[in-house]
Nucleic acid binder design. Structure first.
Lengths: 239, 239
DNA sequence: ATTTCTTATAGTTTGTTTGACTACAAGTGT
DNA sequence: ACACTTGTAGTCAAACAAACTATAAGAAAT
């Protein structure tokens, strides 16, 4: 084991509150009016001033990387209890221009209507962008975003994580549109309905849509127990 | 952005050859006589002297983390051109007793018979263990191994990565046993054969098994082109 | 050299799932 | 009352899966 390296770690940590060389960057997905969106921040200071990027920050000495991600999200959006999953580490030597910094990518799914966003201290602006209309991003954030999208596409077919993007009550068609948008495919209504209902994940409510100018659709919520067991055992959705 | 942190990164890197606080640990899988095995090293020095762990090491300043993983594997096993994939970062604050070290987990698949192993400079011994018989591991390596196994189980159903564990030429039954071992299930020979052949991934060779005391089975290799396209598009094997 | 054993490979059967449709129901708005 | 829109149910042929049976090809035993 490399003694020199270990020693320099110890020294470094004595005069710093953060683990220097490792950051977190997080892709936050939302779903609004049939389109998938991501949350970007405009940096207020530093070499990337004015540019857009994924929200992120440094990992503190005494927190796990997962907790660091939760903390960063809480500071940014004001809420806990978010669906959050680590993507992987990104570590090209050139990815950050000033020095060698490895970043750990995360992606989160949130029910958009639940939260009001407040720009954090390090960001001058926070804004939702449609996934297909994101501007140029700093560093390697385009790659991280790309990886997040791929992961979401994969994940959504293995576990019903899509629910984390929808409001509590939703119609089958909304759910189908979510899948269509994420997977970039077109689906057949009757078939989707049949398949999804068969797996008993949805609980029909005693409610219907309101304020629509056509026949109101049944509202559903998902059954947390079945959701949990399906998520754990790694289900397989084919659409 | 945290100025203090960036400054301390720059300073640190001037007097050190490695990115201090980040290591790599790699689960190397092999397949031998129907059982899945992992390669462990016994540490020769340091606080974990004598104990078994996953092979790993520090990331150098000018290499990407993927390249660091390839380098470590090359040093240990003497070969490039290995199937290697990042798992994720592990970063509990207590995972490493001396200081805060984040590690990035990888897992690799190798064709066992292709390589002779040589213990590297930091390890006193290198040994294959059956996955079900691994001894107690240092730090959080048990968790990393656990994650690797889960990932392998998942991955093997989405892409034909299993081939990386088999010799060039193999029989359908060997292939089936590989799946049975990894997924911990029993399968039906005729059904497995039919399913696998249907996807046109296997090329029958003009050869049969030799040295077996029963009817010799057809040998196959896999078609690299179809393998590639299947791996990229994320196929879905259900067995 | 015939039988027996083991494993390879081919086929059958039954029930389920899919994909592409059609048809009808329930509301709105004119 | 009518058209229009979206929701929901049902049909049908083709593909597929799971469980099985049957046969083929050798090697070893008698």
């Amino acid at each position: 084991m490399n003694k020199k390296a270990i020693d320099s770690v110890s020294i470094k940590e004595m005069d710093s509150d953060v683990v220097d060389a490792v950051t977190i960057d997080c892709t936050i997905f939302g779903f609004h009016e049939g389109t998938l969106e991501v949350l970007l921040v405009q940096h207020a200071e530093g070499i990337s001033k004015g540019k857009w990027g994924l929200p992120g920050g440094w990992i503190k000495k005494n927190e796990s990387i997962d907790n660091a991600a939760y903390r960063l999200l809480r500071d940014l959006t004001g809420i806990d209890n978010i669906y959050l999953e680590q993507l992987r580490a990104f570590g090209s030597p050139e990815r950050f221009p000033l020095s060698r910094v490895i970043t750990i990518g995360y992606y989160a799914l949130i029910k958009k209507e639940d939260y009001r966003l407040t720009p954090g201290f390090t960001a001058s602006a926070v804004k939702w962008y449609k996934v297909k209309e994101v501007p140029e991003l700093i560093y390697d954030h385009a790659e991280i975003l790309e990886t997040s999208i791929k992961r979401l596409k994969r994940r959504v077919r293995q576990a019903p994580v899509g629910f984390n993007l929808l409001p509590e009550k939703f119609t089958l068609l909304q759910l189908m549109h979510l899948y269509e948008e994420i997977l970039e495919v077109e689906m057949d209504k009757p078939n989707f309905r049949r398949k999804f209902l068969r797996m008993k994940l949805l609980v029909p409510l005693n409610e219907k849509q309101t304020d629509v100018s056509h026949r109101a659709a049944q509202l559903y919520k998902f059954d947390p127990k079945i959701y949990k067991s399906l998520t754990e055992r790694g289900f397989n959705f084919e659409f």
